[in-house]
Design a protein around this nucleic acid. Structure first.
Lengths: 215, 215, 215, 215
DNA sequence: CATGAATGAGTGTTCATTCAT
DNA sequence: TATGAATGAACACTCATTCAT
C-alpha cells in the first residue's frame, strides 16, 4: 500500500528537543493548526495523532493533556473553523445600487475561497457524518444566513435597487458558482483550478449584472 | 473513538458458506460493488478489506487473488465508475430550439445526481489525491467534454437557436448549480437535500430560459 | 516502578522463527496455557498479550485470530479450568465405613491442591468480578455439589456409617481446612507452605476420625 | 476491553478546588485511604494514581510529594494495614473456662471479618508477590502470633481448662473456618456470602464446644 | 480459485513519572 | 506543598498483506 504523505512532511531534525512548557491555549492552538493540515490532507482516519503531534512540535501523549481524544481534536477544530468562517454579509446592508451590490458580493464571495474555507468545506464533505451535531449546527446557521440574505434581497427588490427574477426569488442559488469553484479547487488543487475559477468569477459577475440590474 | 459503521452493516449469516468458486470476472465485480459501498461510506483508509470481502461474500485473502492490493481495488473501482459516468450529451446534438435544449439539459443533468454519481464525486474529492493519474485522466476527459459542449453551444448560437450571453461564452458555468446540488446532497444526505435541490433545479430551468432563449 | 516478571521469563532465542501454521485447537491450547501462567503470576490487568503470545511461541496479533480479545482469552481459560476442576466425589459413593470415608476424602481433597487448582482459585479471588457470569455459574455448580455431598453424608449418617454431629449437619464446613491450605499456598508459595499444609492435613484427618466415627 | 470501575466512582464536582495545603501526615493518610479503596477494588496494576489522587482530593503529581512512587504507596498502605490488623488475643489471656474461651474466640475471630481485613487479605493474596519483604515480615509476625496462641492453649490444657485433642496440639488449625469464611466473602461478596458465613460460624462454635470442653 | 492462519507495522489511548512554576 | 504540562513506554487492538494448504 502506497503511503500518502501529509503534503510537505514534517522536518526530521535529529536534535532531541528539550521539553518546552507552553500555556495551554498556545499548545491547543498549535495542535489544532497541525491537525487542520493533517486532517485536511489525509482525512480523519488516515491522519494520525503522532504526526499531528510531531507537526505541532510535541508528542502524541501530550495531545491527551489538551484534548479528550482524536474525535475531540477533530470537533474542536471544525467548531473553530466554522465560527471563523461565517460569511460577511454585513457589508451588503447599505449598498446603494445593483452595481455596488454585485461588486461587493463577487469580491467577498470569491475572496472567501481561502485555503481555510476550502479545508473546512472538504472536511464537511468527507467527514461531516462523524460530527452530526456540528453538521446540524452548521446547517441551521446556514439556513438562517440564507434567510437573512433572502430578506435583504427582497428589500432591495422592493426598493427597486434589484430587478426581480427567478434568482432574486431563490437567492441562495447565487452561491452555486462559488461552491462550484470551491469543488474545482478541492479536486484539482489551487494552482490547477485557478484559471477556471477566474473565468467562473467573471462570468458570474457578468450574469449577475444582466440579471440584477434594474432596467 | 466512536466507530462509524458502514451504514447497513453486512449480514451476519451463521452458516459457514462452503467455498464457492466463481468466474474471476464475477468475483471481481462483486468485490468492486462491495468496495464502492464501503469506500463511499467510510473513505479509503477507514474502509477495511475484511468488510469489503464479507460484503462481497468472500474472505479478505481472496481479494488478493483478484487484485494486487487495496490501492488496486480502489483504482479499478474509480476507473470503472468514471467510464460509466460520462455525461450523456449525445442526445443534445439534434435539438431544435432553446426550449428543447434547456429541457433536455436540465432533465439529464439533474437525473445524473444518482447515488453512484454522488459516490464517485465524493471519492474524487476525498481521495482523488491518492490516484493522481486517474485524476489527470479524468481531468483531461472533462476538459475535452467541456470543449465539445462549448463547440456545440457555439454552433447553436451561430444557428440562432441560442441567444449569445456570458453564459454561452463560458458554458461550463452551466454545471455550477448541478455541482452545487451534488455537494448539498453529499453534506446533508439525499433526504435532507431534496428540497433545496428541487428548488435549485427549477430556478436553474427558469434562468436558463431567460438567458438562452432568443428574443 | 519495579517491573514484576512473569516468574521464569520466556527464553529470548535470537532466531527468527519461521511462521509455523498450527491447527487452531493446538494454537488455542498453547495460548491458553501461556495465559494461565501469565494471568496467574500477574493478574489480568498486569498480564500482557505480547508476553502471553511470546510464551505461546507466536505473536500478539495471532492471538486475535483465535480469540476475540483479552477478556475472551481470560474467560475461555477460566471456563476450561473450571470444567476440569470438578471435584471427584463419585469415588465416595460406595465407602463401607467412616475410616474409608475419611481416608478417601482426605486423600482426594488434599491431592486436589495442585498448581492448577490453586491457579484457578487465585484467579477467582482476584479477578472473579471480571466474569460475573462465570462466577455465577461456578457458584451454582458449587451449591449443587455441596447439596449432593450433604445428601450423601445424610445417607451415611442414616445408615449408621457416620456419627451425627454439627459437622454432618453442615458438611460443607469440612472444606474449610482445605481452603485454608490453598490460601496458605497462594500467599506463601508451594514450598514455604508445605509444612503447614501437611500438618493441617494430619490434624484434619485426626479430627474427622474423632468426629465421624460411630462410637 | 470492558473497563471495570472502582465500585462507586469518585465524585465529579465541577468546581475547581483551589489548591489546599495540608499537613503532610494528613495528606498521606488521605492518599492511603483512597489507595486502599482503589487497590482493593482493582488490584495494584489496574488501580491508577490519578484516580487515587482524585479520590483523595488532590492531583496525581502531588502523590509524588508524599511518596516515592506507586510501589511506595502500596507498601506503605499494606504495612499500615498489617500493623492495624494484628488479631486481638490479649483478651483471651484470662478466660476462666472452655465456654468463655470459645465464646471470646468465636466472637472476635468472626468480628475481624471486616471490609478492611478482607481487603488486606485479598491484597496479600493478589499482590503479595510484589512486596516479598512485607510478606516475609507478615509471615514472621504470624508465626510468632501462632506460637503465642499455641503456648496459651497449651497452658489452658495443662490447667485443665481445655480438653487435649489433635486440635489443641495444632491450634492454628482453628483459623481454617475463619479463613474459609473470608475467602467466601472475597469471591461472592459480603451480601452473597453472609448466609454461609453465619452457618460456618455456628458450626464452628458447636464443634469447638465438642472438642474443647473438658469432660 | 479459495481459505484461514500468521505476522509486522501501525493506531489510539493510558499511565507512571518528571519538571518547572 | 501543590499543580498541571510534558513525555516515553507500554498496551490492546486493527489491518493490509503473505503464505501454505
Amino acid at each position: 500500500m502506497k503511503k500518502i504523505d501529509s503534503a510537505a512532511s514534517v522536518q526530521q531534525t535529529e536534535f532531541k528537543k528539550k521539553r518546552t512548557r507552553l500555556a495551554p491555549e498556545v499548545r491547543r492552538e498549535q495542535i489544532l493548526e497541525a491537525a487542520l493540515v493533517e486532517f485536511n490532507a489525509l482525512g480523519f482516519t488516515a491522519a494520525s495523532l503522532s504526526k499531528i503531534a510531531r507537526r505541532a512540535g510535541t508528542v502524541k501523549s501530550n495531545i491527551y493533556v489538551h484534548f479528550a481524544d482524536k474525535d475531540d481534536v477533530f470537533e474542536t477544530l471544525l467548531e473553530g473553523l466554522m465560527a471563523r468562517s461565517q460569511g460577511n454579509w454585513s457589508r451588503m446592508q447599505d449598498v446603494q445600487n445593483a452595481a455596488e451590490f454585485i461588486e461587493r458580493f463577487i469580491d467577498s464571495a470569491y475572496a472567501s475561497l481561502t485555503d481555510d474555507t476550502i479545508a473546512i468545506a472538504r472536511l464537511l464533505i468527507t467527514e461531516g457524518h462523524r460530527v452530526p451535531h456540528l453538521l446540524a449546527k452548521w446547517s441551521a446557521a446556514n439556513v438562517q444566513a440564507r434567510r437573512d440574505r433572502q430578506a435583504l434581497v427582497d428589500r432591495f427588490v422592493a426598493e427597486g435597487k434589484l430587478k426581480p427574477s427567478p434568482l432574486t426569488e431563490h437567492f441562495s442559488f447565487v452561491m452555486a458558482p462559488v461552491v462550484y469553484s470551491a469543488v474545482t479547487q478541492m479536486v484539482l488543487g489551487k494552482e490547477q483550478a485557478m484559471e477556471e475559477v477566474l473565468a467562473v468569477k467573471e462570468t458570474h459577475r457578468k450574469l449577475l449584472a444582466m440579471l440584477l440590474r434594474p432596467a
